[in-house]
């Protein structure tokens, strides 16, 4: 997992937090707008994250030299 990237769970949590913050009617408009934009960005990011990966089933083994290698395998359901 890349460390510099925003973690999915953090993004989800932040998104929920922003929704809660926006529910507060006393929040100033410019702040609300900022939060709104951040929230929309986060939701897009989360959807991207969910669709990012490709389905892959690999088997992890060691070569004769003791190096790790992966081989794609198919498992019948």
């Amino acid at each position: 997992m890349k460390k510099e990237e925003l973690k999915f769970e953090d993004a989800i949590l932040r998104l929920e937090e922003i929704v809660k913050e926006l529910e507060d009617e006393n929040i100033p408009l410019d702040e609300a707008m900022k939060k709104f934009e951040e929230g929309i960005k986060l939701s897009k990011y989360c959807v991207e994250k969910l669709n990012e990966a490709e389905k892959k089933i690999e088997e992890l083994t060691r070569t004769e030299n003791g190096e790790l290698k992966t081989t794609e395998i198919s498992i019948d359901e």
Partner: peptide
């Protein structure tokens, strides 16, 4: 559960839209 989360995200995003609209109207 991916579908569940996509739904959750969509819900939150639309909630954001409703909330900001409400905010502007109240202002």
């Amino acid at each position: 559960d991916k579908e569940e989360f996509l739904l959750e995200i969509a819900k939150n995003a639309s909630k954001l839209k409703v909330l900001i609209k409400r905010k502007i109207n109240s202002l």
